[in-house]
Every structure is written in C-alpha cells, then in structure tokens.
Amino acid sequence: MKPFPFLAGLVLLSGVAAPGVVLAGCGDTLVTEAELALLLPKRYACAADARPEWGWKYQELHLESGILRDFKRGSGDPVDPSKDVGTWRIVGDAVHYSYQDASGSSGPFIHTVHGDATQGYSICSGGSEVARLQDDLGGGCTAGAAKQ
C-alpha cells in the first residue's frame, strides 16, 4: 500500500461505511496518552471502501511492537497476504503513523482517538472520523462487529 493513497483514502472515507458499520463523529471523549497505550495494541484501524459492497479498504493492525500490519486477505492468503506497512507510536494524546514502501517512507500522519459509551472508538483527523477500532479476532475487520 502506498502511503499517500492510504491517507487520502482515510480522509475521503470519513463519512462512508461498509454494510452494518456505523461511523461516528469525533466530538466525543478524547482518549489520552495512558489510555492509548492500553487501547491500541491488538486492534485494527478499519476504514470502509467508498463502495460498501467492496468491504474494507484498510484493515491495519496495531502490533504491540509499534508495527502497523495491513491485513489484506490474511497471513495465509497466497495472492494478497498480510504485510507490514509502517509504524505507529503514541506522542502525547495523539498517534503518529508513518508508512514505508519501495520509494521510502512518509509521515508522520497525526491522528487522535475518541471514544464514547455506545459506539466504541474512532480514529480522527481534523475533527473527522477516518477509521474505527476493532479487536483482533484473527480475521481482520468485520462489518457490524462490536467496536471495542
């Protein structure tokens, strides 16, 4: 995955959802530094494709090591397996994402995480939701899954 399309895709997808996915705004409670350290590892940033029938455009798993892994079709898929695409780190109350590809790296792209009692957690940029967080249940993002 190339870094610019990823970021542009997330910004453009702020109001688009896969079937069964409810996207929320980012006006709710900001998740702070200490909470982020507990919240992000082993969770996916799930961004829907512009065409809901296509499912998920990005399914990026936050590994505890600070690596960001794109699920694609899963680690066992012979055609489109999961692969490491960048890194993430917490700086204050924000998450800094950097991406690597054959041409080098880009970033950091700075996002905040916001939570609410009923909808779970949103990854936000400029006050708009760009992705939702979901637990890693071994199969990437799932439409309609409870947001944790």
Rank of each mutant, 00 (worst) to 15 (best):
K2C: 06
K2R: 14
P3W: 11
F4H: 09
F6M: 12
F6E: 13
L7D: 12
L10H: 02
L10Y: 00
V11G: 10
V11D: 07
S14T: 11
S14D: 05
G15V: 09
G15Q: 13
G15T: 11
A18E: 13
A18Y: 00
P19W: 05
V22D: 12
V22C: 00
V22M: 03
C26R: 06
G27Q: 01
D28P: 08
T32C: 03
E33P: 00
L39D: 01
P41K: 09
A47M: 08
P52I: 01
P52N: 11
W56I: 14
W56C: 12
W56T: 13
W56H: 07
L61N: 07
G66M: 03
R69H: 07
R69D: 15
R73N: 15
G74C: 05
S75N: 05
S75Y: 09
G76S: 14
D77I: 08
P78S: 13
D80Y: 13
P81E: 04
P81C: 04
S82P: 08
D84P: 15
V85H: 05
G86M: 08
T87A: 10
R89S: 10
R89V: 03
R89D: 02
I90L: 00
I90W: 00
V91H: 06
V91Y: 03
Y97K: 03
Q100D: 10
G104N: 02
G104S: 01
S106M: 07
S106R: 07
G107E: 03
I110G: 04
T118S: 11
G120I: 05
G127A: 02
V130D: 07
V130P: 05
L133P: 01
Q134H: 08
D135R: 15
D136Q: 09
G138A: 03
G139Y: 04
G140T: 12
C141A: 04
C141Y: 07
A143C: 08
G144D: 06
G144H: 00
G144L: 02
A146Q: 11
K147C: 10
K147F: 06
